[in-house]
């Protein structure tokens, strides 16, 4: 089985600092990490490999330093890593990114047939959740997003069954391979890399692909040119000038406290009250 996992290197948002003077984001000194959502997908892929064997190729589109993120994936147990990097990719939105990655996956497929593609549910720096589905559409893959669990894979019949979180419950879905999966956060815990894989990662030479190597001919579909998204403005929202209320309760009884809270909520938001009534 051949699984491709798409990952992105992102700044660790927990450690991002805003420059107190210029109010711009200070990237210097902020550690870059593998997008946390991607790790749930990578671990799911690793578990499939544990059972079924095969190969995992991780792929990322990004600047040269994103190689570090790919090497981390090798340490976790991926077999190959490809960095798709080219100045021509600069300024890509999700449309252009999913195009470039889809093209690169087509190139990977020339080497070995791809059975599954994994992507992160979304990124912590863009939060669009569009790249995975974009790739699935372009490559004509069955799309399974928000997957909480992979129940079974039948490689002979080319089928897969997963549990997917939906708004009102859990869906048990079956479909055919090849498919694209994005895993739900918390669906698994990333393993602790073995010493052997740490050595492999430290010595691993990441494959670096420019746009030609990734099989991209039409430069109008990548980078800024291929990105119809316009960012009109970036700003930090002003904090609301609302004060916190301190509510006194009659007693310490949880029931009393809950009742006081609910009453207060309903008096302040009558519409909420009405809508709950009507249910």
């Amino acid at each position: 089985m051949h699984i491709v996992v798409c990952i992105k290197q992102v700044p660790d948002s927990a450690q991002i600092r805003v420059h107190p003077v210029t109010n711009t984001i200070m990237r210097q000194g902020v550690p870059a990490i593998v997008n946390p959502y991607d790790l749930f997908s990578l671990e799911a892929a690793l578990r499939l490999k544990d059972v079924h064997g095969g190969r995992i190729t991780v792929i990322s589109m990004g600047p040269p330093q994103a190689e570090i993120a790919l090497k981390k994936c090798i340490a976790y147990g991926a077999d190959e890593a490809i960095l798709v990097t080219d100045r021509a990719f600069a300024g890509a939105d999700t449309l252009a990114t999913s195009f470039a990655l889809a093209q690169a996956i087509r190139q990977i497929e020339k080497d070995m047939k791809v059975d599954m593609v994994f992507a992160g549910k979304q990124t912590i720096d863009g939060d669009t959740a569009q790249v995975g589905p974009g790739i699935a559409k372009r490559l004509n893959l069955q799309l399974l997003t928000y997957v909480a669990q992979i129940d079974a894979i039948d490689l002979e019949k080319n089928t897969i069954q997963v549990r997917r979180r939906a708004e009102n419950g859990v869906q048990v879905l079956q479909t055919r391979l090849p498919c694209l999966i994005t895993m739900l956060e918390g669906s698994n815990d990333m393993r602790y890399a073995t010493m052997e894989n740490m050595f492999r990662a430290a010595r691993y030479a990441t494959k670096i692909w420019n746009k030609d190597a990734a099989g991209i001919e039409d430069v109008n579909k990548i980078g800024l040119k291929g990105s119809p998204t316009l960012v009109s403005k970036v700003f930090a929202p002003k904090p609301l000038a609302r004060r916190a209320d301190i509510i006194d309760t009659e007693s310490n009884d949880p029931r009393d406290i809950a009742l006081t809270l609910v009453n207060k909520l309903f008096t302040q938001h009558p519409k909420l009250h009405d809508s709950l009534r009507s249910h």
């Binding site: 602790y192 073995t194 010493m195 740490m198 050595f199 430290a202």
Partner: peptide, 28 residues
């Protein structure tokens, strides 16, 4: 060769001689 995120937990001894290290990773 530089490997981070890896803690050396112990020195490996052969009699009184240090012959290596043990890390916190599997196969360490």
């Amino acid at each position: 060769l530089v490997i981070c995120e890896t803690t050396v937990t112990e020195l490996l001894m052969d009699d009184k001689k240090v012959v290596g290290v043990q890390t916190d990773r599997m196969g360490g």
